[in-house]
Nucleic acid binder design. Sequence first.
RNA 1: GCCGGGGUGGCGGAAUGGCAGACGCAGGCGACUUAAAAUCGCUCGUGGAAACACAUGCGGGUUCGAAUCCCGCCCCCGGCACCA
Length: 819
Amino acid sequence: MAGAMTRYDPAAIEPKWQAFWEQDDTFRTPEGSDRPKTYILDMFPYPSGAGLHVGHPEGYTATDIVARYRRAKGYEVLHPMGWDAFGLPAEQHAILTGTHPRDTTTKNIATFKRQLKMLGFSYDWSREIDTTSPDYVKWTQWIFLKLFERGLAYQSEIPVNWCAALGTVLANEEVINGLSERGGHPVERVPLRQWVLKITAYADRLLEDLEGVDWPNSTRIMQEEWIGRSEGAEVRFDVAGHDASIEVFTTRPDTLFGATFMVLAPEHPLVESVTTDAQRAQVDTYVQQARNKSERDRQSSKEKTGVFTGGLAINPVNGAEVPIYIADYVLWGYGTGAIMAVPAHDQRDFEFATALGIPIIEVVSKSGTASDIPLQEAMIEHGVAVNSGKYDGLETAEFKERVTADLQAAGKGRARVEYKLRDWNFSRQRYWGEPIPVYFPVETEGDPRAGADFTIRYDQPKAVDESELPLRLPELDDYKPGEDPAGVLARARDWRFFQKNGKWFARETNTMPQWAGSCWYYLRFLDPHNPETLCSSELAQRWLPVDLYVGGAEHAVLHLLYARFWHKVLFDAGVVVTKEPFKKLVHQGMILGEDGQKMSKARGNVVNPDDIVDAFGADSLRIYEMFMGPLEATKPWNTSSIAGVRRFLDRVFTVTSRAAPDAEPDDALTRLLHQTIRKVTEDIEAMRFNTAISAMMVLTNELMKLEEIPSEALGILAKLLHPFAPHAGEEVWELLGHPPSIQREAWPAYDPALCEQDEVEVPVQINGKVRARITLPKDANEAQALAAARALPNLAAQLEGKPLRKIIWVPGKILNLIA
RNA sequence: GCCGGGGUGGCGGAAUGGCAGACGCAGGCGACUUAAAAUCGCUCGUGGAAACACAUGCGGGUUCGAAUCCCGCCCCCGGCACCA
């Protein structure tokens, strides 16, 4: 082998090894050994028509390195891939071209799969799953039935942005100043019957169990804030002159004596009854305006507006009469949709009171006495109660407890916990999603399929029988949203209506959102072909939780919260035994275009992985993406830097061509080999791939200096390199005369003793400035170091005549002399 | 506004209390070549001939010693944003 010319030709070796792995079944997940398991998972992609983006291989390479490393370390590794294939783009394409979304999806999956195979990822392809396949949909629907059985899926009339002209519901982002973004048509907030999942029932568990996961701190904080737990009190204010009361939620019951008015959200049902005739016209106008604004528009203007209803409420702590207003800064969706307003201690209430000339009463003070001058802004900090009757002088925390207890005793309130988290709107009026497996009785005189009038009893939902799953989508000619808010599927009358025992029924025509399939796919990978159950409990016990989960930070809340929610429901149903699905989570950073801007078609700065593989090879792309910087960092693409990585791989083949089977590494090389093994091993464990690659470059550069290179050294290099550049690793291993596959070789071990130098070079500082270096035995003591330093003529001169005031000796690191 | 992350050569980055700039890109010089590319070698923070001085967003502090720790400020990126 020595001396043979071995040019590195990725175009030849990459397909060669991909074919070998496929035929050899190298990456099939081993089952049933007593070796430790590792489940390494990527966030599976939506197979878009644009094909793979260079951002995809970043996370996929990182997990692939860990998977290949752990196999070499003796783990049983599960590393699967699949397709999150329901979604809007395929449906939009269908609306424009008439192509069935299934055809588009099949084509796109083929492209993605070709591209992933081209990059040499070590997936166990026998476990490939597709969220749109009937096999998979069956179990997504099955989980929905579990949610329904447990009362966690319910119907609710919730306000949506309905655009009659476009015949569709719009997302908040699509509504601008009450008009549709496309076309400028009026948009109305109308209540629409939707399926909703009761994620709020799991709010506390979703919060508590974040403690136990190894996730980025920022993601945990985002989830905590999304759930938004706050503790406070519910307080009841009676309405003067009515047999009614207003419930409010407050985190500051200690400020009750400062409540100088109340505010109802415009949607609040009591608005109607508390409004006096004199105020009715004004109130109606305000309510109408608020209704036609989208939530986003309501929140975009910070200016406080509102009107007096004419009604008065009684403050339960002191019997004071306070005016009741309506204002859109109070949100119908949070708390009780009504507040007690304390302008002295809440900035929003302060602004509203100032704008409308409402009195401001200070009830909390830093000093313990009320201010002499009017407040310029709300004092929101805690302090000591003033102007609060018998509670005066109490600290905020103690006041809260006492007044809450007193209110409870008086039947006027109680402690309460509130969340920002809302129940999850699970309905889409779209085609390309999982049909919701529910049907309803129909009241009709004829055949509704033929156009007879009908009434659907939505109040009597029935679950589709498990034996009828999967409930498949009907075939349609037209996928456009229509006039019927029931959704696209409502037009498939033959599918929608059916008879059973002589009675007519109608299927639910809403479909599930795209999140549904990705909520549980990590489970199906464990048992992808099981027709009896979504995942056998033995396999769930063996493989869960996912040990490493890598994907974009854009999923920090939605996907990662929804999946945790379903997992907990499945835990309660006995399907899984771990509380959490994903133990360690890592977000890969975004790769920007060469211009430092986000890659986009419009900017023309998109890099296509196919082009890079053609020009440099898959291994160069993989190593480049790992070498760019820390995995989590956002970093700009730079094509000329890939050339450097390619040069590194070229040099690996150059040194391989100088392999000398009988040569032995000398002491210096032995030390470098052990140091490199240690560095690469530690860096893979910590997912610091950029510095691992740097260490392999250093080793390769040293080997370049040798004429005859010990084969043993090259074998170690190949083993370290192979998780990063698997094709090159296999090829070098074979060139060295070993049988494939290098994946079956054990990870090289290092001896810490052999990593150490016998002698170390230590900088000598005078007064903190480096003035010289001394070479010392590695375990030299302070006296030896000082003697060596004094022996240096230039140092002796500098120290002359000055007594040493202090000597700092950090063994093996530094000698600092203070003169 | 609030929360989180970050700011180091021409560029990507390394160093997390102990020699700032590992590794790579780009650049410069040289070898090989008729020439170029490729490859190989050397060089490469700024000022200075050198000794040396200065240098990790800005200002202060702690320490024998700070890119790293603390305080204040500026800027960039991401998230949330009237949540009572």
